[in-house]
């Protein structure tokens, strides 16, 4: 069972590494922000699997931390960059 968990974790890590390509390419800032959502979700999945693999339930708290703060970045982008539009001459 542990070997299977390791395979899943490695697979998800490689998923994140693939997603980096979009950070690199992404033409607009919104594209790049999108990948942070990808990283956040995949990271949470990795932490969940690790909680089972390492048998340490406190890892769930790390996942929740990622979870509740994920939306902060999006709201930050939307609200902070919106002000720019109204002010440019």
């Amino acid at each position: 069972m542990d070997g299977f968990f390791i395979i899943v974790i490695v697979f998800l890590l490689l998923n994140i590494a693939l997603g980096l390509f979009r950070v690199w390419r992404g033409p607009t800032v919104a594209d790049r922000l999108l990948t942070t959502q990808l990283f956040g979700t995949t990271g949470m999945a990795i932490l969940l699997v690790m909680a089972g693999y390492l048998k340490d339930l406190t890892l769930l708290n790390v996942a929740i931390t990622f979870n509740v703060l994920a939306v902060l970045l999006v709201i930050g982008l939307v609200q902070v960059w919106k002000k720019k539009k109204g002010e440019t001459p």
């Binding site: 990283f39 990795i46 690790m50 970045l73």
Partner: peptide, 15 residues
């Protein structure tokens, strides 16, 4: 945004 991914990798490493 790479820094964000870096933070995630570091968090997993600390775990």
């Amino acid at each position: 945004f790479i820094f964000f991914a870096f933070g995630l990798a570091l968090a997993l490493a600390w775990v």
